[in-house]
Nucleic acid binder design. Structure first.
Length: 262
DNA sequence: ATGGCTGGCTGTGCCAGA
């Protein structure tokens, strides 16, 4: 039996509620990682989502950031916040164990810091956050279970993942240190779903609201699904739901959906 | 084009995003 895991940075779940519920109805993903919900847990439109058949876990924050995990399957346990820094109050990580068909799958919804301007304190925070993620992922991989870390990584992995590499030179999303930190995550043993199963150039997941970026297809690919070996073994396909970017009141990101055969 | 949209907020413009 197959199931799907999606990731989508919605850029405010309240402003995007109609887009989100429309897409959940049309695509009917089994597990969904949301980022940038931009609201506290109490204000998440829980009933609207639950009525579509989802269990809901949130890790919200006022105005900024905020992540959530939706699942048609039961959610057995939840971790809120990326371990490793008790001082960090930004809601950028939630992890759940979900009772997927045949076996549990551990799923993390990740909103990695943007890091601009670089250099500077925001870039330092980004790199420190990536190092904490690497440490946590290293521990999770020792469980040898199905693990998918999906989200907005705010890293453009290759020059082929941006319309004009020169225009992004020096940006925190492309700097060599950012790419190296992303690659070092993969080297732990993760499979990046798109690069493994598709890998084509210029397949974007984000288009800026400004300067007609969508109309000119000036995008970047920064939303990724990273799979542990046990998850990669059952990964069948990966799809970027580009059409959602053309809808009224669209998020600047689109969903990315992986299909797994349990 | 060193920021041209969009969202949140206690705001009457500013910060953040990528």
């Amino acid at each position: 039996m197959s199931f799907t895991i999606a990731t989508w940075n919605v850029n405010s779940v309240k402003a995007r509620l109609a887009n989100v519920t429309d897409w959940l109805r049309e695509a009917s993903p089994d597990i969904v990682c949301l980022q940038e919900i931009k609201c506290i847990d109490e204000n998440f439109p829980r009933e609207d989502i639950e009525s579509l058949g989802y269990n809901v876990e949130t890790h919200g924050q006022k105005s900024y950031n905020g992540v959530a995990l939706l699942s048609k399957f039961p959610i057995e346990e939840t971790v809120r916040g990326l371990p490793g820094d008790a001082e960090d109050d930004q809601a950028r990580y939630i992890e759940c164990v979900v009772s997927a068909p045949d076996a549990p799958v551990r799923v993390a919804s990740i909103y990695l810091p943007n890091g601009n301007p670089a250099p500077g304190p925001k870039y330092d925070y980004k790199l420190a956050w990536m190092e904490r993620l690497r440490t946590h992922a290293t521990e999770l991989l020792t469980y040898e279970e199905r693990l998918v870390m999906a989200g907005d990584y705010n890293v453009i992995p290759r020059d082929a993942d941006v319309h004009d590499p020169a225009a992004w030179e020096g940006d925190a999303l492309t700097l060599p240190q950012s790419r190296e930190a992303f690659r070092s995550l993969l080297w732990l043993g993760f499979t990046s779903a798109f690069e493994q199963l598709d890998g084509r150039a210029h397949q974007y997941t984000f288009w800026d609201y400004q300067a007609g970026a969508w109309q000119k297809d000036h995008g970047i690919r920064i939303d990724h699904l990273l799979c542990s070996p046990q998850a990669a073994d059952i990964l069948k396909s990966i799809e970027i739901h580009k059409a959602t970017r053309g809808k009224p009141k669209a998020s600047d990101h689109v969903p990315v959906v992986g299909t797994f055969e349990g």
